[in-house]
């Protein structure tokens, strides 16, 4: 596979992940109603650090 395609694919995947990660919960629920919170256990290790996003 072309190197450019691989790199652009990785970059696009990362961009989608970042956008999804910081999308407000209400918009997320509209896009994918069953997706729920982006992380069940927060980045800091607290179970409370999930639905508002972490950091």
């Amino acid at each position: 596979m072309n190197e450019t395609v691989i790199v652009l694919g990785v970059v696009l995947g990362a961009a989608i992940f970042v956008v999804w990660r910081f999308l407000p919960a209400s918009l997320k629920a509209r896009v994918a109603p069953t997706s729920g919170s982006s992380c069940s256990s927060g980045a800091c290790g607290s179970k409370n650090c999930g639905d508002g996003g972490c950091h």
Binding site: N48, C49, G52, C54, H55
Partner: peptide
């Protein structure tokens, strides 16, 4: 001190 988010929620 761990993270402001759980702190604010606490």
């Amino acid at each position: 001190f761990a993270c402001a988010i759980p702190g604010i929620m606490a």
